[in-house]
Design a protein around this nucleic acid. Structure first.
Lengths: 221, 221, 221, 221
DNA sequence: GATGAATGAGCGTTCATTCAT
DNA sequence: AATGAATGAACGCTCATTCAT
C-alpha cells in the first residue's frame, strides 16, 4: 500500500497530484472557516461550504467524514497553528511579574486582532453551552493556566479577590471589546477594528491593568 | 399592546376564546424562549416550539407569521417587559456619582442573574454579526446611555481614558463571568451560578470598580 | 384538545376531512406493499413509494416516522388482517386429526394464493437473516403452533421423525411451489399461478400428505 | 477462464504483476461473496466490498465494469466451480433408480451444507422475481433435469402426480429447512446448522423420501 | 382559535461511477 | 495493476410554510 517502489523520483507531475488533494482540503477548510465564523454551525450548510470552495458537495465528505468533523477541523487548525504561538509569546522572557502580565495581555490582544473571527466563533459556541464544550475547554485551558501562573502566587485561591476572579475580570475586559465590535461601529461612529482604534483600546487596557496591579500587587512592583 | 382593548364585551363565549388565544400565544412565547436560548435560532425548529408548547404547529404561524418574527417577539418581550425595569433601577435615586455607578452595576447584575438565558441569547447574536444587528443595538443603547450619563461628564470623550472605553471595560468585566459560566464550572470545580459564587463575583466586581473609581474619579468622591 | 364540543354533528364535509388522511395513509401502504414485495426493503426508495402513491415524499414521514416503520406497517397489516383469519380457519372444527391437518393445509394454501406477495416478502427477509427477524418469528409462530397442535401429540419430540421435522417438511412442500412460481413458468411452459395449475398443485400436496400420514399416523386414521 | 494463458513468459516482474492481479480479483470476489450473501445486492455498497477486500474502490470497476457485473460474477463463480460438481455427484454411478435418487439428494444436501450462503442468495433473488431471472434459471435447470431424469420415466408428465410436482415437493422438502434455519434456531432452541442437527435432518429427508417412493415407485424397487 | 394534511426545498450523507496519473 | 480525487444523482429525513376546514 505505502510501498511506493521506484516511482521515478516524482518530478513535478507527481507533485501536482499530491498537492491537488491537500490544496482542495485546504480550500474547503478556508471556506468553512469564513462561513462558520459569520453564521455559526447551524447557520451553514455543507452545500454552502462546497459552493464557497468551488467543489462538489460530496467532496466535503471525502475529506471530512461529517459536518461536525469539518467544524472541529476548523477549530483545531486555529488552536494548533496559532494558540500555541500565543502561549509561546506569553510565556517567554524572564521579566518580573508586572512585565510578564503586560506582555501576556499584549500577546493575547495580538492573537485576537489577528483572528477576530476565531474569538467570536468560540464566544458563540460558549453561549450554546454543552455542544462542543470540550473544544472550548481546550481553548480556555492554556489561557487559564497562564492566569494561574501569574496571579496564582500573588493572590489567595478563594474569595472575591482571588486569582481566578482577577483572571476572569482581565479576560473579560480584554476580549469583550472585540466581541462587541460590530455593535460599537454604529454606536460610536468609528470603525472599532481600525488601526487607530485598536491601538487606543490596547492603551486603555494596559492603563486599567496598571491601576489594578498598583492596587493589588503593590509589593511586586 | 397588552392594553386589552375591550372588544365589544361580546358575552362570555367571546371572552373565553379571546383569553384562550392570549394564553396560547403566551405559551408559545414561553416555549420559544426556552428553546431559542439554549439552542439558538438555527438550532430550533418551529415543530420543536409547537410541541414544547403543546399546540399544533400551524398555530405558530397564526400568531407569528414566520419563525423569524417569533424569534423577534421573544427578544422584544424581554426588551419591553424587563430591560425597561432594569433601566429604571439604574436611573432612579439622586445619589452621588459613585453610588449611582454601584447601584447601576447592581441593577445590571440583578438583571443578568435573573435572565441568564437572555444574556447568552444576545451575546450569541452579537457573534453572528449583521443578522439582527438592530435588535442588538436596541439592547445596547440604554446601557450605553447609562454609561454616558455617569461617565460622560467626568471623562473626556476620546482617547484611551475616555468614557466609552471605561464603559466597555466595566461592561465586559461584569458580563463575561456569566457568559463563560458553562466553562467555569468544569474549570473551577464549583457551580459558578450558585448563590454563594454569584455573591462572591458581585463583591469582586464592586471591588474592582471601587479601585478604578478611586484612580480616575478621585475628585468626585 | 380532544374536547370537540358541539361540532354540528359532522355532516359530509367533516367526514371528508377525516377520510382524507386515512385514505392517503392507505394509499401509501398500498404503494409500499406493491413495491416492497417486488423489490425488497433496500430496493425501494421512499421517493418511489411517494411517487407510486401520487403524493409528496415528505408525506411518507408525516404518516410513518421512518422508512423502516413503513415497512413494518406493511408487514403488520398483512399479519393482523389476514394471518389471523388463516389461523381461525386452521383451528376451527372438531374433526379428527387427519381432517384437521388437511383443513389446515387448505387454509394455508388459501392464504398463500390470496397473498403470494406476502409469502415472498417474508421468504426474502428470512434469507437476509438478522434484520426483521422478530417480525418473521411473529409470522412463523402461529404456523409452528398449529404444527405442534396436530403433530405434537402423535410423534416424539426429538429425532429424525419428530413433529418439528414433520412440520418443516410439510411446510416446505407447501410453500416452495409458490416461492418458485416465477421460475416454474418458463421451465414448465405453463402459468403456475393459473387457476388450473393451482388446483392441481393443491391436489398433489394433499396426496403427498395422505401418503405420509398413512405411513406415520396409521393408528389415528 | 482460469487457464492462465502464458502471456509471453515476460520475466518475473510481469509474472508477479499478473499473479497479483488475479489474486486481487479473487480477493474482491471473495469479499463480494461474503457481503452479498448476508446483505443482498442492494444492501452492499461497492465501497463495502473494496474495503472488505482491502483494495481501492476504483479497482472494483477495473476488474468488473459495474456493481451488477460483480454480482453476476459471484453467482457465476458458484455456478461454474461448484454447481457442476454437484451435478456430477448426482449423476454418476449406474445404480438403480432408488439408489440414484437417494444419492442425488445426498449430493444436493452436501452442496447446500457446504454453501449455505449461496442457497440463500438464490432464494432471495427468486423472491425478487424478474431481476436476474435467467441467472436463477441457470441454477434451476440442472436440478430440474436431474429430476426429470429420475422421475420422468416413471411418472406421467401431467396431473397432480406428475414428475414435475414430485420434483418440486422433494426439492422444497430438502431446501426449506436450510432457508428457514435462522428462524428455527430461536424457535426450536437448538442450532439447526450444527453437525448433529444436520445429520438428523438428512435422515428425516431420506425417511420421507423412502415413504414416498414406496408409495409411488413400488414397481421399481 | 385551532388543527391535520400537504408540500417543495433543503438538510447531511452515501451512492456508483469516471478519470488522470 | 492500482489509486486518490472528483462528481451528479440519489438517499432517508426535516424544514418552514400554506391551506381547507
Amino acid at each position: 500500500m505505502a510501498t511506493n517502489t521506484e516511482k521515478k523520483s516524482a518530478g513535478h507531475k507527481e507533485q501536482e497530484r499530491y498537492d491537488k488533494g491537500v490544496e482542495t482540503q485546504e480550500r474547503l477548510l478556508e471556506a468553512a472557516d469564513e462561513l462558520f465564523i459569520t453564521r455559526g454551525f447551524d447557520g451553514v450548510s455543507v452545500n454552502d461550504v462546497a459552493q464557497h470552495a468551488g467543489v462538489a458537495k460530496a467532496l466535503v465528505f471525502y475529506y471530512f467524514k461529517s459536518k461536525q468533523e469539518l467544524f472541529d477541523a476548523v477549530l483545531d487548525r486555529y488552536y494548533q497553528s496559532q494558540a500555541q504561538a500565543l502561549m509561546d509569546a506569553m510565556g517567554n522572557g524572564a521579566r518580573d511579574t508586572r512585565e510578564r502580565i503586560h506582555a501576556g495581555i499584549d500577546a493575547y490582544l495580538d492573537f485576537i486582532e489577528k483572528n477576530p473571527g476565531y474569538s467570536r466563533l468560540i464566544q458563540r459556541e460558549i453561549c450554546s453551552s454543552s455542544r462542543n464544550l470540550n473544544k472550548i475547554m481546550q481553548y480556555m485551558a492554556p489561557l487559564y493556566q497562564w492566569g494561574q501562573s501569574v496571579f496564582g502566587g500573588l493572590l489567595r485561591a478563594d474569595g472575591p479577590l482571588s486569582a481566578k476572579h482577577f483572571f476572569m475580570t482581565i479576560f473579560g475586559m480584554a476580549i469583550n471589546y472585540y466581541t462587541y465590535a460590530p455593535v460599537l461601529g454604529p454606536l460610536w461612529g468609528v470603525d472599532p477594528m481600525g488601526k487607530k482604534a485598536l491601538a487606543e483600546r490596547r492603551e486603555h487596557v494596559h492603563a486599567m491593568l496598571e491601576t489594578l496591579l498598583d492596587a493589588y500587587l503593590q509589593e511586586y512592583r
